[in-house]
Write a protein that binds this DNA or RNA. Sequence first.
DNA 1: GTTAGCATTGTAAACGTTTACAAACACCCC
DNA 2: GGGGTGTTTGTAAACGTTTACAATGCTAAC
Lengths: 358, 358
Amino acid sequence: MRRATARDVAETAGVSVATVSRVINAATGVNPETAAKVHAAIAELGYRPNGVGRSLKTASSRLIGVLIPTLSNPVFAEAVDGIAEGVADGGYSLLFAASDYRREAESRSIETLLRYRVDGLILTVADAADSRILDLLDTAEIPYVLAYNPAGAHRRPTVTVDNRAAGALVANRLVELGHRRLGMIAGRLPDSDRARARHQGFAEAAAAAGLPLPLLAEVPFTRPELEPVLAGIFAAPDPPTALFCSNDMLAIATIGVLTGLGIAVPGEVSVVGFDGIAIGTHLHPTLATVVQPSRELGRTAARQLLRRLGGEAAVAPVILPHALRHGASLGPAPKSGRSGASASVPPVSSPEIRTSTP
Amino acid sequence: MRRATARDVAETAGVSVATVSRVINAATGVNPETAAKVHAAIAELGYRPNGVGRSLKTASSRLIGVLIPTLSNPVFAEAVDGIAEGVADGGYSLLFAASDYRREAESRSIETLLRYRVDGLILTVADAADSRILDLLDTAEIPYVLAYNPAGAHRRPTVTVDNRAAGALVANRLVELGHRRLGMIAGRLPDSDRARARHQGFAEAAAAAGLPLPLLAEVPFTRPELEPVLAGIFAAPDPPTALFCSNDMLAIATIGVLTGLGIAVPGEVSVVGFDGIAIGTHLHPTLATVVQPSRELGRTAARQLLRRLGGEAAVAPVILPHALRHGASLGPAPKSGRSGASASVPPVSSPEIRTSTP
DNA sequence: GTTAGCATTGTAAACGTTTACAAACACCCC
DNA sequence: GGGGTGTTTGTAAACGTTTACAATGCTAAC
């Protein structure tokens, strides 16, 4: 049976399609009796307005495109849940795509979303400062809001935390705990401006505290091969006593591999993550991490975009608060190096050290 | 600047819109030189075909609607990732909605998805056997595939595991380990036919092993208030020595609350979850659970739906394999009850006990 | 009784595609 | 040279809405 159209409803109700349209759009100026007839016809036929026809005519799809790296990382899943919550108020629906951290998939997915004529986009891209596709959105004047991507010279609207300050916060806390040899495990830096900002803050704070440049290991975001990397790091002399991981998933995997290698966490090495995924507090050991409010971040991004769609001019970046959550994976620096070869760690001069929580 | 249309491209290239359409659809029978001209015009104007116009004409949106309870539970997030992977092959995109476990949101969301004229749907509903909205989809002959919802008399296409057998598997394993007083913590049973099937299998196997009816506590899926529930259970005489939770998130929360109440896991009570979310192996204690292949489940659901859209008749249910994953949250029954008041547990007669792994 | 004003409804033209059909043309064979 | 065949292109109608505009009928004021 063919699906009923407004025309069918019109015939059944004995009115014109224009009247039907007025009724379903709750427009003013239609006789209550007529409206009742139309509603009866709608119910009788099981009519459901065709959004495609409407979109074509009104040039508005009531669709928001969402692109994130992957749903397998709870930090993004939660944000999308928040976005869904946020756009529902405005009567928008979500057209979803995942890039799997691949840049070419990023462009391709956005192109697809644009084909559907989404009214706006919420995106987490590899690098907000250097993105052809974002340039394209800008020139085409297609409204979008970034999520997680750091604010910067690009002046693009985004909702995020201060990743650099957060990275510094971690370094300072580690220094406070007596760590002198720091390391960072990150997803490939070119694939994540967040990770880059976190690393920058981390390294800067380490330098400010008079520490040597932290070791940096980059691994692919998807299926990182941590075992050889970590084995290598801890086979070398004077390995780090603390590792900052660019996200919680990486931190969890890192702790798992370290444990497998017989390296005690936090006895021999402390691990700090980033994101504050809910499950972290239930891990063994509980995960020390920088918490960012993901659901709220998604909701805010949605709200900002709706505001923009509502006619407001370019919206300013929003920086949400972050916080360091303590966990059992973080402890004081061990008294001596793993190999026993390194000299004892000199005491840290506390006066220079400050943690900052925005 | 107005967005370029096929008409603009046609004028620029000096051809008709029909030819433009033929070119972008890679149709046969167009002169290579003409095609080149058209491609040049497309590039020059930055033309992007309007999917809305196309959908209207072709009566196919190349859109798949997805409805799940929530993205906050990794089991669904992973499945959606799998679905996205699966439909991408066919050139489909995903229109996403979450019901938050509320039935009325379920209908409302599906109605919305249908307005966009999705070509098909992948759904996890509260109760596949009793759903007005699924009846509606059936009569309207709108293709859909369920995910996670158990197969049953309703004969609806679904991709799932044998939840009942899995529930029985858990009970049998607990009996093997000497547990005699079992309990189940579940989301509200009317809100989840999966939980119901798991409970059924669990209770049946317990009965078959000659055990008393397992205790059952139902809590809301969203923000379950476990503390009073568990406190109540363990204040009563002869509390259970093993708890089967209807999903991993609930199991994790349960372990957390039990620990807070000073009840040792698995020393005093064992906890078994369901879903096999990846993080479970990193928990403290590691989570014993029934593993279902979520990503694969999503991928399969997508494939089944595409097959159906490709013209195949009603597709049969697919039952994927499940497996019990051991974890430290599961141990042998304690020698005596928590209060010390209960009699010693009689030894279990092993011959009657069988575990089954499909 | 006329007519201005208002409320209600209808008519028809878009929106951007796809596609059946027709037209134009070149080629080849007799 | 005529006509059949095949390739390439164009014309125009449709898909299901919304909405500007016109038309209709009614009320009320003159």
